[in-house]
């Protein structure tokens, strides 16, 4: 079980750095979706079943859809994207160093076969009971946040007179 986590950590780091460094926005979005799926695998192996499902479905699905619809609403031709970045000095050694350090650490962990040490005893509790019974303040906050999101979409995407 520990090897799955270490391999997934390596892939997560690689996908995140590729999402940051990629020149094309669509490829960045796809790398981000892959990173979310890998994080879902890590969460599932650690025992957080509900969080893994919601992470994969929301982050890997909903945010990618929002991102791609935002890209398509601003129709930029591919040559303009290249022109935007051609004069930007890229520190290419920084992400390469990040990936090398991260992967080296994980290879070290795999070689030494570090297992999951669990120092605390597990409190058997059901996530659903805790969420609906004791975290009601968070639920009120989430409802208000979703309300603000709805108001924001209504206010910001309104299509009335175009001021030039």
């Amino acid at each position: 079980m520990a090897t799955i986590i270490y391999i997934s950590l390596a892939f997560l780091l690689i996908f995140c750095v590729m999402a940051v460094m990629s020149h094309s926005l669509l490829k960045s979005a796809i790398y981000l979706a892959l990173a979310s799926a890998t994080l879902g695998v890590i969460l599932y192996v650690l025992g957080a079943y509900w969080a893994a499902v919601i992470e994969v479905s929301v982050c890997s699905g909903l945010i990618t859809v929002i991102f791609i619809s935002a890209i398509s609403l601003s129709k930029i031709k591919k040559e303009e994207v290249q022109k935007l970045y051609s004069d930007k000095k890229r520190m290419w050694f920084l992400p390469v160093m990040l990936i090398v350090v991260g992967v080296a650490l994980i290879v070290l962990a795999l070689a030494n076969d570090l297992s999951l040490t669990n120092t605390a005893e597990k409190v058997t509790e059901d996530f659903r009971e805790i969420f609906w019974n004791t975290r009601q303040a968070d639920i009120i906050g989430q409802i208000v946040t979703i309300l603000i999101g709805g108001i924001a979409v209504f206010v910001l995407f309104r299509d009335d007179e175009d001021k030039k």
Binding site: L43, G47, A48, W50, A51, I54, E55, V58, C59, L62, I63, I66, F67, S69, A70, L73, S74, A120, E121, K122, V123, E125, D126, F127, E129, I130, F131, R135, D138, G141, Q142, T145, I146, I148, G149, A152, V153, L156, F157
Partner: peptide, 30 residues
């Protein structure tokens, strides 16, 4: 620390907030 149910409640709330921030940011950007 063993309280996995509480941690999952935190993560789900953080994911909801993250989605709404992404929506608002996309709106302002457009």
């Amino acid at each position: 620390n063993g309280h996995m149910g509480l941690a999952q409640a935190y993560v789900i709330t953080a994911i909801v907030i993250e989605v709404i921030v992404a929506v608002v940011f996309a709106g302002v950007t457009i």
